[in-house]
């Protein structure tokens, strides 16, 4: 079977999309879970500040999520644009 250059590029792009999203999901997942855990610890210690802690948790997680969204964007670019 003859493999053309275009096919090779397309195959590499698709494989790259899977790798980008798969590995890109590890970091945000662990990081956001750690944040949620620390927020729970804080609420157990100081329940009166639950709102403040939840707000801070959400802001921190949003920043942490950004790399996950970059991975998604790169994966979609590799699938549909390249």
């Amino acid at each position: 079977m003859e493999i053309t250059g275009t096919e090779l590029v397309r195959a590499a792009a698709l494989l790259g999309a899977g790798i980008a999203m798969g590995f890109g999901a590890i970091g945000p997942g662990i990081g956001e879970g750690f944040t949620a855990g620390k927020a729970c610890e804080g609420i157990a210690r100081a329940p009166e500040h639950a709102n403040l802690l939840t707000r801070t948790m959400l802001v921190g997680q949003a920043v942490s999520e950004s790399t996950g969204i970059y991975a998604l964007v790169v994966a979609l670019l590799l699938i549909f644009v390249v």
């Binding site: 790798i19 999203m21 999901a25 590890i26 879970g33 750690f34 994966a75």
Partner: peptide, 23 residues
């Protein structure tokens, strides 16, 4: 790529959720 994406992508969120649950 489909398998790698969902398989490897499951590691982080699950460990993170587990940590949140433990706290």
């Amino acid at each position: 790529a489909a398998g790698v994406s969902v398989g490897v992508g499951a590691i982080g969120p699950a460990i993170g959720s587990g940590y949140a649950a433990s706290a």
